[in-house]
Write a protein that binds this DNA or RNA. Structure first.
Lengths: 193, 193, 193, 193
DNA sequence: GATGAATGAGAATTCATTCAT
DNA sequence: GATGAATGAATTCTCATTCAT
């Protein structure tokens, strides 16, 4: 595989995201993707070993975008609850923008049969939050009797599923309320009494 | 479509669950399914409009099994936290047994593009938990300042993802700890003080 | 085969004409026809040996309708040219009304591989016109140096193809002019000097 | 679609004509055609969008062959009636040789629902005959009070149907008589007194 | 006669992948 | 590296026909 920032790798990846988001995974052929990307049929295989390797690549792209965004926004924030608030906000925003890509990534679960890839993709995100939690514990912002690793995963799951229920399942309600409810839930679950 | 309890509908459905669990979705052809079910090729299309309509049907089957099991096990339990503990336990058990089917159902998200179907399938499960929460509120077992509908969905989501992370993503760690952490998390988030 | 005027035979035949005219021959299944006819799948085979036997039956139906109509209208007419004029008029009318059925019958040429059936169907029409020509010859209305059999076929062909070019190929022009041109052509071809 | 004179397009077309003539349209599968053509299954779809698009292509091929032949044979002929005689003769010859292909083309009427394609295919043939008629009019060989366009179509139709009745419907009689009758019919209809 | 669920052979079409240029 | 015509295996789905009721 070539450099990620090589022109054609990204052209193909972005074309794939675009076409698959629009037409769905099984309705999209390599031909559709290369047409959209403006490269030749065979060029695809210079950058991706096979079609199914697209999905982890897309997921990775989305996840690294997410993490970058969240790290960026929480850069200046030092209070734990401020960070959580930002995390919630950014997750909702990204879910709104990329809901088709997210659905696509879910389907990757069934196609890329090994979940290890998934874990690898999420690892940097988990690690970052674990550090944040560690710091919050040591500053006494949250209770200390919790398993940092599990809690990091729980938090990300709570926030992501709330956002997905809102934007993907299109449940009724108002965003602000939903975000607030999510925040309160986490606050009750983590803060010292 | 015929009655759900018609012999052939179920024969095909169970055969599909079996074969797809084993071989994965795209590796499974209609031919594989009908062979396993012992019916003719064309018979499949008498009961399912197309291959992709199998997935919601499988999901529905799994969900109704889950709900039945959980209702059964919580039948004698009256305390809210006892029910939650059972919910966690049963979800982990079912996830262990049916992880291939669950993965398959996720892929349905991308194939059956409308989330409405998914919502419809989950509705009875949500309703049941909403009632349980309502009762817990009125008994003063949990705080009253929460959105019942939203919380029901969140609980199910949190528990399911924990189980999936454990059994499907095969994260390291010990089940009991994982279940306990999930329980504590919910308890802190919902119980009074 | 049952009586032609048996209720179900005709129900199926008319349903077939309707559905095939609308959807085209290869897009129409027996299922479509029996649904439209309001009879059971198996009932079709009580009246038609197979699907391909439908087309000659439809053609026969159309031809007998045509002949009946023309005979009727020419009943009171005694002059040969009056009869030709009526023949032209009725052929144009019927072509307008039944153009889809006519196209369908043409395709029957390829499906019912033996043309004998076609000849059998047209035979009564040819015979009738041969008699008319015979009488015209003996009355001195047309030249006598012509082969009655070939001429009957030529006339029918000239009139039918003119009507088909007008209504099916949708060539431009005005009906009256087209009919007049057809009449003049025949008149020049057949009349004395 | 590639160039008509591309090797594979023609290989497939000629193979299709061969196989379909022999086995009939519905008895012929794409597999039969590509086997005969010596190309891969998928290659067919590189040149024809679908099976039914074969028929207009075959018709076009036959028509251009016909026109070429007739133009060739009438090259040296200058008298109008000589040309008509050649037209009749060649049409009969070609009908004899290609009757299976002709039957196939008729079925195209029902399959390719739009008549426009048919008109387009015949256009050069019509145009050529229109010019011939025009010239005959100006030379005073035929009457001038006729619609050139309409008459061109009618002549082609009359001659083709006569040939088809003879070779395809296998009517009894002798070819020479049939051709002569057709010629006389046209002669009486068109020539100046 | 009438029914309609079941059949299963068969076909068209798709599409990931290759490879000579 | 890039191309894109060619490949051909694999698969879904259709539908005429049957037959037990």
């Amino acid at each position: 595989m070539r450099e990620k920032n090589d022109g054609k790798y990204n052209k193909i990846l972005q074309a794939a995201i675009g076409v698959i988001s629009e037409k769905g995974l099984d309705r999209t052929s390599i031909t559709d993707i290369v047409k959209q990307a403006g490269v030749a049929q065979g060029t695809f295989y210079l950058y991706f070993p096979s079609k199914k390797d697209l999905i982890p690549a897309i997921a990775e792209d989305l996840l690294s975008l997410t993490l970058e965004k969240i790290k960026n926004e929480t850069n200046q924030k030092h209070g734990f609850w401020e960070i959580v608030q930002t995390l919630i906000h950014e997750t909702f925003e990204l879910t709104k923008s990329y809901k088709d890509v997210i659905v696509l990534c879910y389907s990757g679960l069934a196609i890329v049969h090994s979940m290890e890839k998934w874990e690898t993709i999420y690892t940097p995100y988990y690690s970052w939050l674990e550090k944040v939690l560690q710091s919050a514990v040591s500053k006494g912002e949250i209770i200390s009797s919790l398993d940092i690793n599990w809690t990091a995963r729980l938090i990300i799951n709570v926030v992501e599923s709330a956002a997905e229920r809102f934007y993907i399942a299109e449940e009724e309600g108002d965003v602000t309320a939903c975000k607030k409810e999510t925040f309160s839930f986490l606050q009750r679950a983590l803060s010292k009494n």
